[in-house]
Design a protein around this nucleic acid. Sequence first.
DNA 1: ATTCATGCAAATCGTTTGCAACCCA
DNA 2: TGGGTTGCAAACGATTTGCATGAAT
Lengths: 149, 149
Amino acid sequence: MESKSTSFKEILKEKGYKLTSQRQAVLDVITQHEGEHLSTEEIYELVKVNYPDIGLATVYRTLLLFDRMDLVYKMDLDDGCNRYELNNHKEDHRHHHLICTNCGSIQEVQEDLLDSLEEQIAKNNNFIVKDHKVKFYGYCGACAEKIEN
Amino acid sequence: MESKSTSFKEILKEKGYKLTSQRQAVLDVITQHEGEHLSTEEIYELVKVNYPDIGLATVYRTLLLFDRMDLVYKMDLDDGCNRYELNNHKEDHRHHHLICTNCGSIQEVQEDLLDSLEEQIAKNNNFIVKDHKVKFYGYCGACAEKIEN
DNA sequence: ATTCATGCAAATCGTTTGCAACCCA
DNA sequence: TGGGTTGCAAACGATTTGCATGAAT
């Protein structure tokens, strides 16, 4: 924990930013909720539990900063707001999301397999691929059953 | 053109909707700008050229309808608004977009190649894939050159 | 001490909605 | 005729911004 805070501070200092208790609190909440896809408002509510005086604008500014710093992954789940998850650099590939269009559930997929596709795109389109965002839409197991019956 | 209007009318009637001059005007604009990725506001401005009295809300409602009817493909290009392109059912695969994070240009890629990935996801995650949205981020040819120099 | 960050409130932006008038089927 | 559709304006929700205060280096 100490080492994590230290490296966080380092990362911030590198870019000329300061380590504030608000930024630490936001990072803590996101870390404690790994695997979830929290909206800014949800993060704000969670931070307020331990830090009641934080302002919503600060959370917005912090998440903007974290996104630019690649600390979080910003995603669009088609519900009209930005959602965030911890950018886990331990993964060698970005994971994808399976969105059930019936019940709205979100599953994560670890397979990537887009490497060969990226290579082909790079070659055929004279484009250097740095990142990608992939969403699959369909029916989760539970909904597929319901619909078939 | 006559046949296109007729089939459009059929598609609307099927769902109990009416063919209005406003809906025709919006469809015309989208058809005339195939290959572009127009925002609602941009479509509104283009429709107004020949149809000055149309309201912005009508364009919003029309595009919502067209999206539900699968006449258009709604996309999110990370600029804070919805963008639309004609859903060309002639393609057997959905195409992807290459977004240059330096200049903001958008290229389209016809390759899909996600079929095998979809199969694998279906098998390993008990999920029925119906559709997907894929965006690649990186540098277009022109920007890649500039950045290297 | 300097610079950056915060909280608050107001402003902004894209989009949606209520409603009376309107028009296609 | 009658129900879907329109235009307008107001409402809305997410996000951003201006500014004076406050905190970190």
